[in-house]
Design a protein around this nucleic acid. Sequence first.
RNA 1: GCAGGGGUAGCCAAGCACGGAAAAGGCGCAGGACUUAGGAUCCUGUUCUUAGUGAUACAAGGGUUCAAAUCCCUUCCCCUGCACCA
Length: 957
Amino acid sequence: MSGFEEIEKKWQAEWSEKGLDRADRISGRPKFMIIFAYPGVTGFLHVGHLRGYTYTDAIGRYKRMTGYNVMFPVGTHATGNGAITLASRVANKDLDFIDYLTRNGCPEEKLEELKDPMKAVDFFNTIYVNEYWKRFGFLADWRRFTCTVHPDYGKFIQWQFKKLNECDLLMQKPYYSPACPVHGPVAIDASETDISKGGSAEVQEYTLLKFRHGDEYLIAATLRPETVYGQVCFWVNPDVQYTRIKKGNETWIVSKEAAEKLQLQVDGITVLSPIAGKDMIGWMCKAPMIHKDVPVLPASFSDPNVGSGMVTSVPSDAPDDWISLEALKKDRAVAKKYGLSETLIDSVVPISIISIEGYGDFPAEDIILSMGIDQPGDPRLDEAKKQVYKDGYHMGRMKDICGPFSGMRVEEAKDKMKQAMIDSGEAEVFYDLTEEVVCRCGMPVRVKRIDDQWFIDYGNEELTERTSEHCRHMEIYPPEFNENVHTTLRWFRERACVRQGNWLGTRFPVDEKWIIEAISDSTLYPLYYIISLYANDGRISPDNMTEEFFDHVALGKGDAEEVSKNTGIPKDVLDDIREDIKYWYPLDINLGGKEHMTVHFPVFLFNHRAILPDNMQPKGILVNWYITGKKNKISKSKGGAQPIPGAVEQFGVDPLRLYYAHVASMFVDVEWSEDNVMTYRQRLDRIIGTVEELLTSEEAGGKKEIDEWLISRFNGHSASIEAAMEKYDLRQMATAVYFEMLNDIKWYGRRGGNCKETVTEALRMWIPLMAPVTPHIAEELWSAAGFEGLVSSSQLPAAGPVSGAAEYREEFVREVMSDVIQIKKVTSATPKKIFLYTTPSWRSDVMRMGLEMMEAGALDIPSLTKKCMADENLRKNGKAVSEFVKKAVTDLTRSSSESKKYLIETDEYSLLISAKGFLTEELGADVEVFSSDDPDAYDPHNKSKAAVPGRPAIYLE
RNA sequence: GCAGGGGUAGCCAAGCACGGAAAAGGCGCAGGACUUAGGAUCCUGUUCUUAGUGAUACAAGGGUUCAAAUCCCUUCCCCUGCACCA
């Protein structure tokens, strides 16, 4: 056979030529529509991504071969700022990035046009389709390709949002989002898709506490409003410049950084005069809630970038506060420097407010002592803080001095106290990020209030209930997700669905200043693949694609004549689209990576349920896990993984496809390993070699027992594959096809099988089963075998009957062989002769009786013994019989009656006689077979007495 | 924290929803065959013990049962996702 690459090209051309990749409606023929969640266009993909895509193609191919008309469309997702960033990096001559492009095969002259984001999208779209999906031999309907930034797709999304609006699922409310000043709201996540720094940052809610000083307020930001009863002083960093700001008719003092952040979240803030931290030291200010005057003291840990830049001090429960207060009391020089009197310092004493199991009156003190921290600025203070916060929150209870909150659990008191202070005007809410975040464009990301943010109301109970109910009728794998998709749906609340700024995407039809964000424009899109065909070939254009058009083709609203007149689309085209949608929808399988479980899949389900009728609801979801790198996830953005074209060249497409299908269950992560792929390549080589050998073999014998065995085995595999594929279990299928069936066919040859007719029959079963996972090789072998047509468009034959008897008999021979080898090994002798003694017939008789009793449901040792003793012949052997009965009964109760039936029915003697030649050759010694009943048998060591049904006695000489 | 998943040979990994001789299959390793056009192929073995037997063994410990990797409880240890990111 020629090289992989050559046969890949050959058969891909052939499939395309014969139109296997085109999915058209065929009335009356069952259909199967499958997609993978389309990838975002953010750069080159790597070998990990092809895992899920390959599953999709293999399942589609299998369905095609079991009678279905299969539609497998593909597309890409370009909404967002990925392409914009990419283009700007090219435009800015970012060397690392240009190197990344060229390393992955981007020609130099292409760089110029990549400065245009849309061109960049086109560039990658072409790569995804030609270098990844087509290269992998997918039978996708390329005519239907769509991309989220194409104008026709946009029309579809606008229609979808109009429908959501009609269902009252769009709403507006203020929203606090991490936002870039240029690009608007950004996503913060570990993959750092939108941002260049700070992927693990979180938005934290601070309570701003207002401390009155004269007619001004010093503002402290706290994460623990429940600790206000323990406030004893106020920390200001003497080395920081603060500023006064006008907030409504109040004057606040905060750090300059905090002032900037506040302006993003609160209206009408004006910055007034600056004030140095050191000028506030020694002030007295009135603490909220407890209304006590507390002194302002110096603290270096107070960071202007965090919160308001000032901190209220609760030494009892805050390690920083405790250690700073202690330091201040110890080092009187500092107090002196700021003119603080000793009496003032001494008057500040911690107040115990929360009791936590395992801690004393002052949790902060305890944790500091146990961790051995002895001065401010110790880096472990952060850990100490986290620990004591966590324990306090979950196990703590408010002590009796906490007024109306006394006795409450901290978890409960926290919200209540915060709310009480907000209500009395002593506190406000403020949001900040836990660490510095920088947008891809280089600008700092801050939390910003957006007043008129639009949301999709996934919190809608009625919709949630209906969606959840529908999921009960779906096929969702893995089973865990099938279980917890319901909780995921319930956990969803409103989701911001639009954003502003420099983003690619579709204009929000309700208010055009917004652009629909990336998740929200990718929920209903499988439906669009049916329509995209017509937009792509020009039969309809974005101008025609009005709300009325979509209402008609998707929902069956309106009269075709009328719609045709209003849209300018010919009626027959409208009818075709409508019929296509009725034929292809609902979607049978949506396959996607595990990251979709809490993001894409729920909204995919919600939107279908909200907009489309009952008979258009999705039928299945398949989730696949990742291919990982050595230590961490192979990442698109961080590179390091093998580019796809290189891998294809190195290993061949089919070995890669087999690797994905078989290396592990779909539902576990797999560590990428070239050696693994290589072993799959070798396995395919072996299969190819074996088949070629079978085809070219000159030997031609008649049918023997082993022929029946082979066909029975293959029928069994076919049936188990059918069952496995009901659950889309490609791995189990691949085990049968590429391992077990190969082993069987090898064994067949070893046992002297050489019947042309059987071999042909076996290949007709085997090769098509290879077509879903390794289509190119299957095609090549199919043609080499001289079978008609393309195997990819053939139908899998229904599984024939299995012969339990034939399989049992073969197993018996194998056991005998293995036992002899065992004995040879243990004795480390090389025998010249091997004597086999089949069971004495009385033992079979006992077994037979036992089996009868078991089937009658009355098998036990005493009654079987009794029954045996009633037999005159058996009674002669009294002692041996009763001993054997014990063994037989335990034996019988432990295993299925099915296998015991074969055990009794098999004529072991003639079976061994027929296998004599084979055993002699395999074992390298002459084999003699005797029946234990034979009084003249050569048996010098009386081994024959060990013979039982299914287990002949063995003597080596 | 919330939600969920898992611990099976040197390694990867089936089996577990529905209890019925545990180790499918692969990799690795060790012998042997064939022979070095190869990242080969074929055979055998791979917990201990042993004339093919027997004994141990599915994270640890309990329980239910004639019977437990599988069902229940306790403990220990790993992992995943958590929102505007396909």
